[in-house]
Nucleic acid binder design. Sequence first.
DNA 1: CCGACTTTGTGCAAACGTTCACAAGGGCGT
DNA 2: ACGCCCTTGTGAACGTTTGCACAAAGTCGG
Lengths: 260, 260
Amino acid sequence: MSRRTRSDSSLQGIPEATIARLPLYVRALYALADRDIASVSSEELAAAAGVNSAKLRKDLSHLGSYGTRGVGYDVDYLIYQVSRELGLTQDWPVVIVGAGNLGRALANYGGFASRGFRVAALLDADPLVIGSVIAGHRVRAADEIERVVADSRVMIGAITVPAIAAQGICDRLVAAGVTSILNFAPVVLNVPDGVDVRKVDLSIELQILAFHAQRRSVVQVLHRGERDAGVPAGNGISGRTGRALALNGDGQVAAEAVGT
Amino acid sequence: MSRRTRSDSSLQGIPEATIARLPLYVRALYALADRDIASVSSEELAAAAGVNSAKLRKDLSHLGSYGTRGVGYDVDYLIYQVSRELGLTQDWPVVIVGAGNLGRALANYGGFASRGFRVAALLDADPLVIGSVIAGHRVRAADEIERVVADSRVMIGAITVPAIAAQGICDRLVAAGVTSILNFAPVVLNVPDGVDVRKVDLSIELQILAFHAQRRSVVQVLHRGERDAGVPAGNGISGRTGRALALNGDGQVAAEAVGT
DNA sequence: CCGACTTTGTGCAAACGTTCACAAGGGCGT
DNA sequence: ACGCCCTTGTGAACGTTTGCACAAAGTCGG
């Protein structure tokens, strides 16, 4: 036993999938707390977070035994425990590089300040933008990256610059000592070991949506086709899938023709 | 065999994980095409996309056999095949509800128009914003959701309104016939079966980063602690983890004291 | 104080995803 | 035409994640 007070499981090995869901639980818990709900069952909390209750219980069990059998979880207590596990009980200064639309959105983002994150500085390379005030922050020159990181003990950087500039900014952030990077630019960043990069990509999410939407159309059309004995209908669901049909009716052969 | 011209694998069952990576490959392929590279090996493409080459090959194998052994993949041909699979060869009108910072960022997003997505309309509820022009679109009233969806055959909606308003907008989009929703608001949306929701959450990504950053700090501090024979050092790495230490040195007991 | 009821925490099996390692297959030099 | 060499496509092993189903453990009414 010795000095291992921490719940054993938490130091080594909370599954990545679990970690990705913890923020969901924190948010759902805060919503409950706002409604003055003091206690919640795994079933209710799971519903509020949009997951399955067995998964929720298993996730929480990785942090420790914070529930009471027959009763549920104490909302405030669980908020504290999950927040602590995520590191939200401490203060995280973040530097945002790129004061374009996304950088501004981020600086103005409400969930930002409310969970321990604080905008240490908002930087940009454009002389026209430098000096203007956005979300209460005077935009500073991108040249000041190193100074800002050092002065404010920044450990997290958000990159919201155009794709072409992202790797350069990333290199400077890393050189200045930033070890966690949130990348909004649509490029794959190269970083040394020990630096953690997560990316948020609007375009990728849209493309995934498009895939499923297309698949729904195709399936509908195929069902219709089977019923109609194999002749692809010229007009699927109210005309929306016109081009999809042209491509998917015999995609393979069309592809061969185009590609080779 | 009959009428199953499509590559067998593609109609039912491309793994979700594969689909999530296809946009990455498309992007990397376009970057290669821009540099006039006509052919690429799985090793090179994997490096460009930031994945392992075996994974890339397996992913592509789900779409069909589009490579040439001993040579690699034809860049243009592969772009076409992957794009078609994702549904990017057709036109996707998107309605953006919420013309705040995020909505504007989205409307201005370059990767938006370039991959078959088109802003059908940009809506907002604020009378001060309605009528202004953003990214070439005159902002229209949020009341017009139904009309816009019907007139432009919109199948994808992006929700960039405050959390409190998101569910209402979502309901109206769904009622109007939208079946794919990209949600930027930090809430869990309730939708009927058959509607596909994806969420992008800046705050969640930050929290995951914070978790890993904290874990790095804690590990460092613990190593230091072991070396120093068990007494938690008052100051971990250059003072940055002051509060983390207070919490993690004996987190369990501190938690009990606070929580109950 | 006890027994019925509720809900947590978890062993287990199935589904899913990743990685290795190599056979199959195609180009290219001779 | 042949054989070498290179790279794809994939079977098989491994690891991770999910979900079921239930024992363990607590509350609460009588």
